[in-house]
């Protein structure tokens, strides 16, 4: 399978992965049809050099189907844990496909009054639940994750411009 264009679950945005070596938005269905109780990310995209696990949450769009726990008021770490679990669930599939490129986990988050600072605070909190510390151990041969980031849609489109995330109405296809 090569790249494709995916529509996020609310139907407002499209992630254009046509330039990807390989991409999918089907991990949820794959796990579901296999009766596997693992969490999954919304999209996976592979470039020549990297793999991107992409989780997308947008609390700004009207009637969003997946309005998350208010992102900045996540007192019991419910959202942080959920975002981390999605990584652990999804990385299993990547390992089963024997894909060995560096794994970047990106959380695209839009929520009211969001700014760079609150996104970075969120990023720093979630990072502690990901295996960065674990993979520093001397016996670890194959690290699971290279990079984690929390970005807005605008930041995603600048930093990861190979796979633009655009409103459906602005997309070419």
């Amino acid at each position: 399978m090569v790249g494709d264009i995916f529509v996020e679950e609310n139907g407002f945005y499209r992630l254009d992965c046509t330039s990807a070596v390989w991409a999918t938005d089907g991990l949820h269905n794959i796990y579901h049809s296999s009766n596997i109780a693992l969490s999954d990310v919304d999209f996976i995209s592979e470039s020549e050099e990297n793999l991107y696990l992409i989780e997308y949450k947008n609390a700004n769009i009207p009637q969003a189907a997946n309005n998350p726990t208010p992102i900045t008021a996540d007192k019991n770490d419910k959202l942080h844990n959920k975002i981390a679990q999605k990584f652990y669930g999804s990385i299993i599939y990547i390992k089963m496909l024997n894909k060995t490129k560096p794994v970047n986990y990106i959380f695209i988050a839009e929520y009211p009054h969001a700014d760079e600072i609150t996104r970075k605070l969120l990023r720093n909190k979630i990072k502690r639940k990901l295996p960065f510390k674990l993979q520093e151990r001397a016996e670890v041969i194959s690290p699971l994750i290279t990079n984690f980031d929390v970005v807005s849609i605008a930041e995603w489109n600048i930093k990861y411009s190979a796979f633009p995330l655009l409103p459906k109405t602005l997309s070419n296809t």
Binding site: I117, K120, L121, R123, N124, K125, K127, R128, F132, K133
Partner: peptide, 15 residues
Amino acid sequence: FNVLLDEIFNNDMED
């Protein structure tokens, strides 16, 4: 703030 938060992130310090 960004400089501080990036430093925490890159040095894996508690925040």
